[in-house]
């Protein structure tokens, strides 16, 4: 595999190893929970980066993938008795397919129109699920604790879910990297720079945009399935928490939109920063404010984010890392 000769491969491998080993040593459950959240952030941010950073399209509603993935998984397990793995995969495929259908519709919209439509997709899906009987409407779905038995009981199941999520995170980073270095990725980057010029040069813009929209739905949907399996409960406000997709955008921008490592570094920085700023629980309402101020500062003063800044200072690094 030529990919194993790239430094990038080993950087990701090291990050994943840290995620795997740190909480396991000493059975540190609190650290595990924090890292689990970080893995979710990185998964969301890395996938949104393929649309935002590569193709230059804003998706304000990426959380829809996460939430719908959760719903499919939880519903298949509780109502149809599917095992976790099958439910996760089916959820991922179903959400990707749905995204492809949405994508073929709304990706005929250009630029800002598309961004507005993604807000609409979010509202629309949320309203639909809230009214959808088989998924419990506004009261949601509960999972019976018995469903944790096949994984060796609740305590062990939490570890399994954690490792699976770390796997999904790693897959997201590799996917992002593979896309960037492919012909598909080159086409997306061209679209992000100048969509008209890209089309004139032969980039099949509608197909590529729909494909990346759909592709960026797959892993978040699986992550959503894992996340809500772990909670054993899902209802619309949690599944479609706009704050999470907002934070994913902030993280991708902070780390450096369009770079492969940016989302991972951005997630780390963001969680650290929030940790420092939110020491007191009375300030927890200010999470959005911090995200907003941070985003504004990046957009106005450092649109390339941290990695963008680094690559501008040391252009050689870009060739080395990406």
């Amino acid at each position: 595999m030529t990919i194993m000769r790239r430094p990038f491969f080993w950087i990701i491998a090291a990050v994943v190893a840290l995620f795997a080993v740190l909480p396991a040593a000493g059975n540190n459950v609190e650290l595990r929970e924090n890292l689990l959240l970080a893995a979710v952030y990185i998964t969301l941010a890395s996938n949104i980066n393929m649309i935002l950073g590569y193709a230059g399209y804003v998706n304000f509603g990426s959380i829809v993938f996460f939430g719908l993935g959760g719903y499919f998984c939880v519903w298949l397990m509780s109502a149809h008795g599917w095992p976790l793995a099958a439910a996760l995969l089916a959820g991922g495929v179903a959400v990707s397919t749905l995204a492809l259908l949405f994508g073929l519709g709304i990706l005929r919209l250009r630029g800002v129109y598309f961004a507005l439509a993604t807000i609409g997709v979010n509202e629309g899906v949320m309203a639909f699920v809230t009214n959808f009987g088989p998924w419990g409407g506004s009261s949601g779905i509960y999972l019976s604790p018995a469903l944790f038995q096949p994984l060796g009981g609740p305590a062990k199941a939490l570890w399994v879910v954690y490792y699976l999520l770390v796997g999904v995170m790693a897959a997201s980073l590799y996917l992002s990297y593979a896309v960037k270095r492919s012909k598909f990725g080159l086409g997306l980057l061209a679209i992000g720079q100048n969509e008209d010029a890209a089309a004139v040069l032969g980039v099949p813009t509608p197909r590529y945009k729909a494909a990346v929209y759909s592709l960026s739905a797959l892993l978040p949907a699986i992550a959503g399935g894992l996340y809500f399996f772990k909670s054993a409960f899902i209802q619309p406000p949690d599944a479609f928490d706009l704050q999470l997709s907002t934070e994913a955008i902030v993280i991708a921008m902070l780390g450096g939109q369009g770079t492969v490592l940016g989302p991972a570094i951005g997630a780390f920085l963001y969680v650290q920063l929030r940790g420092w700023l939110l020491v007191s629980p009375t300030f927890s309402n200010f999470q959005l404010v911090i995200a907003g101020v941070l985003l504004l500062a990046i957009v106005l003063f450092a649109p390339g984010g941290l990695m963008g800044w680094i690559y501008r200072r040391w252009p050689r690094l870009r060739g080395f890392l990406e």
Partner: peptide, 13 residues
């Protein structure tokens, strides 16, 4: 490369 990739011959990267 964008021009070459997506042009007449549909070349590999």
């Amino acid at each position: 490369t964008v021009g070459a990739c997506f042009g007449r011959e549909n070349l590999s990267l």
